[in-house]
Amino acid sequence: MQERPWLSDDQLRAWVHYLGAHTLVQRALERHLHEAAGISHAEYEILTRLDGAPGRRMRMGELAAVLFSPGSRLNYRITRLAGLGWVRREQHPTDRRGLYAVLTDEGADFLRGVTPGYRQAVRRHVVAPLTDEEFAELGRLSRKLFQHHLARGD
């Protein structure tokens, strides 16, 4: 019996294009943030998550979970952002082991300054090449993959 290929030719082409597009978009956004603001995409996401949180603060464990980031990597990035004055750590008032990451006023000001350029970069690299219908389909398919992996606990 002949073994079935892992992907059909059409599936393989789609997979290779997906991988390439993902890599190039990530690279373009990373490059934009590095050149425009001296930060990584992961650091930008930390700042935006904190900015959207109540009181501009999140427990470190909660932040790691929503970023799908190991605690040690998040701790490294928080230390860097704290060194820049954009984030600070605060002790939880009742849990001695609990720490919060808190976006400072300086961090919020920095984020407000860098966000318009980031949004333009997202529009240029992701939205502009697609029609409105294609972008909606990209959103639908991405949501489906995201929910699938969340349900599996990946």
Rank of each mutant, 00 (worst) to 15 (best):
D10F: 11
H32S: 12
M1C: 06
R112H: 00
E3C: 06
G20N: 13
D109N: 10
A36N: 09
L150M: 10
I78W: 03
K144M: 14
E35M: 10
R152C: 07
G153Y: 00
A128F: 07
L81V: 14
Y118L: 02
D10T: 15
G139E: 03
H34M: 10
W86R: 01
E43C: 06
V25P: 00
V87A: 06
A28E: 04
P5H: 02
L50A: 05
H41N: 12
A42V: 15
F110M: 07
H32L: 14
E106P: 00
R89N: 05
F135M: 09
S40A: 13
H22V: 11
R119Y: 00
S69V: 09
V126W: 09
R123E: 14
R88H: 07
A121R: 01
L145N: 01
S72L: 09
R140L: 08
E137M: 02
L47E: 00
E106K: 13
E3I: 13
L99N: 07
V66M: 02
L84W: 13
L24N: 09
D10Q: 12
L145W: 06
G113R: 07
H92L: 04
Q91L: 15
H32E: 13
Y18D: 10
T131Q: 05
L84R: 15
L145Q: 11
E3A: 13
E62L: 13
A42W: 06
M58W: 02
G52F: 03
A53T: 01
Q26M: 10
K144I: 08
L103C: 08
R119M: 02
V16K: 14
V102A: 08
F135R: 05
A65D: 11
T115E: 11
D105T: 13
L111P: 03
S72W: 10
A28N: 04
G107Q: 05
F110C: 02
R49M: 04
A37I: 08
H148M: 03
A36H: 08
L103V: 07
N75Q: 13
W15V: 10
A42I: 09
G98S: 02
V25R: 05
E43H: 12
I46C: 03
L19W: 06
R140V: 10
A151Y: 11
G113C: 08
L33T: 04
D109Y: 09
R56Y: 05
L141Y: 09
V122F: 03
Y100W: 12
